[in-house]
C-alpha cells in the first residue's frame, strides 16, 4: 500500500521536476536582449571578433529546445554551466554557498522549534491568561513583520545601537569554530525564525488545548501529578507529530526566505548570489540557482508529504 503511494509520488515528483526545469530554462532563456552584452564589459564591446567567438562558443544560435535538452542533460550531471560574468561554474557557486544557506535555514528552524514549544505549551496551559495574551500579540506581530525589515531592525538595534554583534561577514564553522560562527549567524537566523516561530507556537498551542481536554490528561490531573510533568510527558508528546511535520515543511519555505535575509546581512549564501546575479544580469547564474532552489523545495515538500503519510494513520488509510 505504502509502496504504491511511493511509486506514484516518485513519478509525480519527476514529472514536476521536469516541468520546473523547463519553466526555469524558458523563463530566463527567452530574455529580450543579447547575452553578449552581459559577457563583455563596455571596453570589449567594440571588439567584434571576440563577440563572434563567444557566440560560437556558447552556441547561442541553436534552437531553444536543443539548448534546453543540452542544459538539462548537463544539469543532471551536476553541470549548470558557468557564469557569463565571472566564469565561475554555477555548481561551484552553489556548493560554496549551500552551507551558509542551509545553516541559516536549519538554525532558524531550531530557534523556531525551541522557542515555540514552551511558548505554545505555556500559552495552552494558561489559556486566556496574561502570558497567553501577550504571546498571542507577539505571534501576530512576528507573523506580520517582513523578514527584511526585522533584519534591518536587528542590525540597527544590536549592531549600531548596542554594538553587541557584528552585522557583517560570516565566520565559517570550519575556520573559526562554532562560537564565532554563531556570532555572525544568530541575527539573520533570528530574523528568519520570526514567522515560523509564530506559526509553530500557535499550532502547538491549539493542538495542546485540544489534548489537555482529553480524558487521560484529566485523569492524570485527578491522580495529582505535577503540572509540569503532565505538560511534558502527556500533553506534549501527541502534539510533537504535528510539530515535526510543520517544522520540516517550513524548512523548504525557509530556503526561499533566506534569499532576502542573506542580502540584508550580506552573507555569502545562495540568496546573495542569486540577487547579485539578478543585478548583474548573470543569466546562467539566475537559471542555475533558481533551478536548484526550486528542486530542493520540491523534493523537501515531497519528502514531508511522504513522512506525513507514513506517520499519520488517518492519511494512510485514505
Amino acid at each position: 500500500m505504502l509502496g504504491k503511494v511511493l511509486v506514484v509520488k516518485t513519478v509525480r515528483l519527476i514529472a514536476t521536476l521536469f516541468a520546473v526545469s523547463l519553466l526555469t530554462f524558458l523563463l530566463v532563456e527567452q530574455l529580450p536582449g543579447d547575452p553578449i552584452l552581459a559577457i563583455l564589459p563596455p571596453g570589449g564591446l567594440d571588439d567584434l571578433e571576440t563577440i563572434e567567438r563567444i557566440r560560437k562558443e556558447l552556441r547561442l544560435d541553436d534552437p531553444v529546445l536543443t539548448r534546453y535538452f543540452r542544459w538539462a542533460g548537463d544539469a543532471l550531471q551536476g553541470d549548470l554551466g558557468k557564469s557569463y560574468i565571472t566564469d565561475q561554474p554555477v555548481s561551484d557557486a552553489i556548493k560554496d554557498r549551500i552551507p551558509v544557506t542551509m545553516e541559516l535555514a536549519l538554525l532558524a528552524t531550531l530557534i523556531a522549534a525551541f522557542l515555540a514549544i514552551p511558548i505554545g505549551a505555556i500559552s495552552a496551559y494558561r489559556e486566556g491568561g496574561y502570558f497567553d495574551r501577550t504571546m498571542s500579540a507577539f505571534t501576530t506581530a512576528a507573523l506580520s513583520i517582513p523578514g527584511f525589515l526585522a533584519g534591518i531592525f536587528f542590525i540597527w538595534l544590536f549592531t549600531l545601537k548596542f554594538n553587541w554583534l557584528p552585522s557583517t561577514g560570516w565566520n565559517r564553522i570550519t575556520d573559526k569554530g562554532l562560537l564565532a560562527n554563531l556570532q555572525t549567524a544568530i541575527l539573520p537566523a533570528g530574523a528568519l525564525a520570526l514567522a515560523p516561530l509564530a506559526i509553530n507556537a500557535r499550532l502547538i498551542r491549539a493542538d495542546m488545548i485540544g489534548t489537555l481536554k482529553e480524558d487521560y490528561i484529566l485523569s492524570a490531573k485527578a491522580k495529582g501529578l505535577r503540572d509540569r510533568y503532565i505538560l511534558m510527558r502527556h500533553a506534549l508528546r501527541p502534539s510533537s507529530l504535528t510539530a515535526i511535520t510543520v517544522f520540516a515543511l517550513q524548512l523548504g519555505g525557509l530556503i526561499g526566505g533566506t534569499v532576502v535575509i542573506e542580502n540584508v546581512f550580506a552573507l555569502p549564501g545562495l540568496g546573495t548570489r542569486l540577487i547579485s546575479g539578478i543585478y548583474q544580469r548573470d543569466v546562467v547564474m539566475i537559471q542555475g540557482i533558481t533551478l536548484f532552489i526550486a528542486t530542493v523545495y520540491v523534493v523537501v515538500n515531497a519528502l514531508v508529504d511522504l513522512l506525513y503519510a507514513a506517520l499519520d494513520p488517518r492519511i494512510r488509510r485514505q
Binding site: 563596455p42 570589449g44 564591446l45 567594440d46 571588439d47 571576440t50
Partner: peptide, 12 residues
Amino acid sequence: QFGAAAGGIVTA
C-alpha cells in the same frame, strides 16, 4: 587581445 577586459584597450 581576446580578453573581455583587455580587448577593448588593445583596440583603443
